[in-house]
C-alpha cells in the first residue's frame, strides 16, 4: 500500500473512491462480523412486514465502509483519529454504494499533522446516504 504524506494533501482534494455493492451474502457476512442479527437485513418477508420496501444495508456496515475508505487512503503510517457518519438514507443490496471523501482542512498541532475530511456514501441517484467526517494524522516528508 502506498503512503500519502501531509505535503501531498490540499483542501479540496478528493481521495480515491471505494466502490461497494452489497450482495445479500455480504449482509449475512456483516451480521456475523458485527453480531447484529436484525432480520431486516436478510429476511425479505420480515423487512417488508416492518414497512420497508425490502432488505436494507446496515447503517453500521456503511460506517465501516467509510472506515475502510479512509484506512486504504491514509497508508500504513497514517493514523485514524476520528470517523463517523449519520444515516440519512437507506441503501439496498445489489445497488452501488460509492464511498467518497474530500479534504476540508489541514493543520499542524503539537507537532502532529492533521487532515480533516468530509466522507460519505452515495447511492445511484447521487444522494449522500451516510454523510460524515474523519480526522487523520499523516506523516511528513521532512
Amino acid at each position: 500500500m502506498s503512503q500519502v504524506f501531509f505535503e501531498d494533501v490540499a483542501e479540496g482534494l478528493e481521495i480515491p473512491e471505494l466502490k461497494k455493492n452489497c450482495s445479500t451474502q455480504q449482509l449475512v457476512l456483516w451480521a456475523a462480523g458485527s453480531g447484529d442479527f436484525y432480520q431486516i437485513h436478510y429476511d425479505k418477508d420480515f423487512a417488508q412486514g416492518t414497512g420497508l420496501p425490502g432488505l436494507i444495508v446496515h447503517g453500521a456496515l456503511k460506517h465501516a465502509f467509510l472506515g475502510q475508505l479512509v484506512h486504504d487512503w491514509m497508508g500504513p503510517k497514517g493514523e485514524l483519529r476520528k470517523f463517523g457518519c449519520s444515516y440519512r438514507g437507506m441503501d439496498y443490496p445489489n445497488e452501488d454504494i460509492r464511498c467518497r471523501g474530500v479534504v476540508t482542512k489541514k493543520y499542524t498541532e503539537n507537532g502532529k499533522n492533521f487532515v480533516e475530511l468530509d466522507i460519505w456514501t452515495e447511492n445511484p441517484a447521487g444522494k449522500k446516504t451516510s454523510p460524515g467526517t474523519a480526522t487523520v494524522a499523516l506523516p511528513s516528508k521532512n
Binding site: A60, H63, L80, R81, K82, G84, C85, S86, G132
Partner: peptide
C-alpha cells in the same frame, strides 16, 4: 427511533 449517527474517536 432513528439512529442519528455514530462517531468513533481513537487514541493511537
Amino acid at each position: 427511533v432513528l439512529n442519528g449517527g455514530t462517531e468513533y474517536e481513537y487514541f493511537p
